Simulated scan of single mutants.
Amino acid sequence: MKWDPAKYVKFDDHRNRPFFDLTGRIHADRPARVVDLGCGPGNLTAALAERWPGAQVVGLDSSAEMLAKAAPLAQAVPALRFEHADIAEWMPTGETDVVVSNAALQWVPGHQDLMRRWLKALRPGSWFAMQVPGNFNAPSHSLMRELAASGRWAARLGGVLRGGESVGEPADYLGILLDAGCAADAWETSYQQVLQGPDPVLEWVRGTALRPVMAVLGDDDARNFEEEYAAALRAAYPQGAHGTVYPFRRIFAVGRKEE
């Protein structure tokens, strides 16, 4: 399943804001090593290198397309690098001080157990911060699943899309951090995003949630699926005088492991 970096960063103002809301709660002073799990095109990982210029900052991602987009950033910043890796197989090293995962763990089944293992391995005084979308039951996602399960598409798309089980609630992540001996904070924010242009919600999900469907269907079927889905989205998210309001719930958790 390939990522399209250009499609992903099309709404970068909206996509980037949760990252800065998340990392603003990290109060690490002079970390030696900072890891960004699921770094995507690398622009936000570079922001971590700017914030902590004395740190070695590493971005990990499983997408070759995203890493190709990120590579020039590392050439400009000696302490910044990007590596191809499956974050489900990653473990922190002893010198890791800050771990950030922004809008990535929803793609990893069993990530809550992974978090427990990561937190156990992190040294005292280190920070862990994560953010995942909490909108799997919003119309943008439920309508996609309903269409995928309908008669025309069920045989090919059955089991392709995950639902609300993809992520936990804020209390779930808070409990994981507290159980690991962290001073922790967890919260949620619903951003009222105003999108512009024709079928903007469809354009948004093309960069993320719709990718598993497009990876299965051929070009003609993909167009037909999108046409049906777009009609449902227009009814669910009507365009107003100022654009199309697309509410987006995000779930955050930050913790510092007690010394």
Rank of each mutant, 00 (worst) to 15 (best):
R152V: 14
A209Y: 07
A215Y: 06
G164Q: 09
L177G: 06
R162K: 15
G197S: 08
E165K: 12
S142V: 15
L177M: 13
E165W: 11
V167I: 11
E169P: 01
R211G: 06
D199S: 15
L143I: 07
E146D: 13
D185R: 07
V167Y: 04
A171G: 06
G240R: 10
F225W: 03
A171W: 09
G181Q: 00
A232R: 15
A230K: 00
V245R: 09
R145E: 04
V167E: 01
A180C: 10
E146Y: 03
G207F: 07
L177H: 08
P170H: 13
G168N: 03
A184R: 09
Q192G: 11
E146G: 11
E228Y: 04
A171S: 14
A235E: 04
E203P: 01
L143V: 04
H242D: 13
R234L: 10
L202F: 11
W187V: 10
V216D: 00
L233Q: 00
N224L: 12
L143R: 04
D179W: 10
A154L: 08
G168P: 04
G159F: 11
F225D: 01
A155V: 09
D172L: 15
D220M: 06
L195T: 06
L157A: 05
V213I: 15
Q192E: 13
P198N: 12
L195M: 10
A186L: 09
V167C: 09
A231P: 00
D219S: 14
W187F: 15
V201P: 00
G240M: 12
S150G: 14
A171K: 11
E228G: 05
A230N: 00
L174R: 14
L161S: 05
G181H: 01
L202D: 01
P200H: 09
